[in-house]
Nucleic acid binder design. Sequence first.
DNA 1: TTGAAAGCGCTAACAA
DNA 2: TTGTTAGCGCTTTCAA
Lengths: 325, 325
Amino acid sequence: MANIREIAKAAGVSVATVSRVLNSHPYVSAEKRRRVEEAMRRAGYSPNSNAVHLSTGRTGMVGVILPFSHHPYFHALLGGLMEEALKHQYTALLCQTNYEAGEERRYLQMLRTKQVDGLILCSHELPWAEIAAYAADGLLVACEPVRQEGISCVYTHHYEAFLTGMRYLIRRGHRNIGFCIGRRDSESSRQRYAAYADALQEIGRPVQPEWIFEGCTDLRDGMRVMDRIAAMESRPSALLVTGDEAAAGVLARSRQLGIAIPGELAVVGFDNQPISEALQLTTIDQHLQEIGRQAFGAFYHGIVQPGAAPRRMEVPFALVERTSV
Amino acid sequence: MANIREIAKAAGVSVATVSRVLNSHPYVSAEKRRRVEEAMRRAGYSPNSNAVHLSTGRTGMVGVILPFSHHPYFHALLGGLMEEALKHQYTALLCQTNYEAGEERRYLQMLRTKQVDGLILCSHELPWAEIAAYAADGLLVACEPVRQEGISCVYTHHYEAFLTGMRYLIRRGHRNIGFCIGRRDSESSRQRYAAYADALQEIGRPVQPEWIFEGCTDLRDGMRVMDRIAAMESRPSALLVTGDEAAAGVLARSRQLGIAIPGELAVVGFDNQPISEALQLTTIDQHLQEIGRQAFGAFYHGIVQPGAAPRRMEVPFALVERTSV
DNA sequence: TTGAAAGCGCTAACAA
DNA sequence: TTGTTAGCGCTTTCAA
């Protein structure tokens, strides 16, 4: 409706002065500031963002790419990220891909058309090489380890984290250890699997394919896993589960089936999500909130220091001992 | 990076011509069009949206306000809406509120700052009167019946839909009918409850408070309801459930408990979601996709005919008979 | 069929 | 401390 010129006229000042109070610059007399604010209030004025963004070349928005946002994993990541964004007056724009490459491409395009200053990728469908092509148009941050020119990254060392989990179970006397994994095809998944296999090798045990469960992300997946284990003649005595949500499903079903935890089956989860505390589940905390915070930090660093080299940052994990082992 | 002026220079034409090919105007010679396209391709050019939006006064974006998007209810609504939006070259911007009024206000503010051309509200926290104050800044469409100056609406007649469901159960001989409802405080919920109570009155039965279950939205809620019913001495013989997701939970748990459907308990769901077909659940289809389509249609009508009066549109529902009654 | 030029609403360098 | 003014990148008359 009203624009800065009309406000200036109403307040009897120049547009520059109005712009100054809009951006809380110093060097505006108290009296003029008051008059400008009054004029804005009366006009119900809000600046046109398109004009602001065009003029400044910045949008104050960062896109966050994820498949969906309702899983506790992304929820935690987002929590830390948005908290940090808020602190620096940035707005996070949720970009849901539903695991579709086409959607992801549309969001990358937003970088090129200057709708966001950068993109934080919590997941990705496209190959990193294709994504990196957009580095010229804005900042790119990944929440997993990537080695690509122009992309910053913040990540957990999944190999070490899972090795830690495995050795912990082994120290507690387990030899027959099963493994639940989420999506198979990510780099992190490969690292996790490698740690699982290597740890078994350390104690001279072969990998038992029937003890490896793929596609475990939510509660119901975990319940299904427990059903399958219950039906086995030779069961594992322990389970390393990629997410707490799935681990919670294992626990829930085991109770229904009357299988004792940890007596008959020890369980180590991953992520230290709220549900794991409620269920007293031993888990590995990869500090997702911190990853989210650092991811925004890496983005913001690139904003504040244009031309700065991409960051690589490993966030430490921690084993949280409770009563499921 | 590159802007329209550089493309014009590279192609040896004026910026107006470049703008014309950008917007596929007629009256551009084939030869110049080719040269411009070639120049754009070589420069990897994409127009700056902020400049486009500022200049045109339109953004080609519509915000869709909802608490979250992963529930089948919103999924269906969004499906129809986005399909229609795509058809008219509009982009839907998902605005998740998590049921927080503050978030909703921030999204309304986007209307004022011209980041979106309109807002379609699939849910709302703020009172309609407060929302209507933004009608001056863009188009407002609600997915429920509202009577407020400046707001269009597309809706199901929930009272009639639930009356239909109740009478259907009554015709099938039921007298002891329970009722599952989602959130209590919406206008639709009130209508649904009124239909439930009125139908009981028609057959001279009182409302039994213990047969009314609130807060039923997902599968697990439905399972809990079934557990409670199973524990009752005097059980209802039929259940009218606000959403198919919750109804599916009732069915799932009843199977585990060995309670026959529809023999011991008849169930009517709502929404005709995919899961209801899988489970052969009798349900009331409120044609959510159509509501989504019409909601976008109401918005788009306001774009195409500026100044047009807000629309009110009732979408018909239909009872889908399957085997749970 | 084409181009020159005046905006769209704001920011920021510069001068005062 | 304030105002003038030249952009930011695009669209769209208007005249040719």
